[in-house]
Computed example of a mutant assay.
Amino acid sequence: LRADPVIVTAADACAVRRAEEGRVVLRSYAETRYGAKSWNCQRRVVARIEASTLGMDIRYVVTSLTEGSAEHIYDTLYCARGQAENLIKLHKTQLASDRTSCRSANANQMRLILHTAAYWLLWRVQQAMPKTAALARAEFTTLRLRLLKVAARVMESATRIRVAFASACPDADLLRAIVLALKPAPT
């Protein structure tokens, strides 16, 4: 194992000690170069170091990027990649979009299109929700169960559609707020 040393100043050590004592939460970034035996060269390693009352949390990212600060690489690039993977996971697990068991490729493609439409619907509902709502950060399964699978009476006339919820519907106000947020602007 070959690694360049990471320099920690006395001020950094003092800040970490204060963080471990619960007085502050410290987040810092460091970088070094590292080469495993199986690698033919050393690579850049970015570390996000966080100290809090819960202890130390250190995350490492090995990268071939030579430009950009350690903070930019971790916060902007690495975290964005992780968020994209989380969204794919939501698509697959909570909307069952990985079920492509039809014999026809066209049928499987249509299933995927419908699952993607359901994803966009739930994502848009989540974006339209007031940020202070209890369901604002809920997973799609919870949104589907609490907001889409709701008993209501739908009354349709020539000019409008009215939805009447039961008086005991716990999310009626939230649904009203979402509908108003999704309502198209008058033309």
Rank of each mutant, 00 (worst) to 15 (best):
E50V: 13
R18H: 14
F140E: 04
S104R: 11
R146G: 05
A128V: 05
T132V: 08
L143P: 10
A80E: 01
K37C: 06
D57G: 06
R144A: 06
I88Q: 06
R124K: 10
C102H: 11
L148P: 04
S64F: 02
V24K: 15
A118S: 12
I73H: 02
H115D: 04
S28N: 06
V61I: 04
L95D: 04
V62C: 12
V150F: 12
L54S: 12
N86E: 13
L147T: 08
H72D: 10
K131L: 03
Y34D: 02
T66A: 08
L114Q: 04
A136R: 10
S157T: 13
A134S: 14
I49V: 11
G55I: 00
A19D: 05
T142F: 02
V45G: 11
L90I: 00
E67K: 10
L135N: 10
H91I: 02
T132Q: 13
R124M: 08
T141P: 02
Q83C: 10
E139L: 01
R137M: 11
A105L: 13
Q83L: 14
I88A: 12
C79E: 14
A96I: 02
E156G: 00
R111Y: 11
Y74D: 00
T63Q: 01
A105R: 07
D57S: 14
A117N: 00
F140W: 05
A134N: 07
Q42E: 15
F140R: 02
V62H: 02
Y119C: 05
R111A: 14
A70S: 11
M155P: 03
E21V: 03
Y34M: 07
V125W: 03
L122K: 05
A138V: 01
S157K: 03
A152L: 03
A152M: 03
V61G: 01
Q94S: 11
L95M: 07
V125N: 00
G55C: 01
E67W: 11
L112N: 15
T63L: 00
T66P: 00
Q83I: 06
A96K: 07
V154A: 06
Q83K: 09
R124S: 13
K89E: 02
S104M: 10
R27L: 12
Y74A: 00
A30Q: 13
A80R: 00
A152H: 03
I88D: 03
A47K: 03
H72M: 08
K92A: 05
A36C: 10
Q126M: 04
E20P: 03
E50W: 04
R153S: 12
L65F: 13
L87E: 06
A117R: 00
L95N: 05
R81A: 12
T116V: 05
W123E: 15
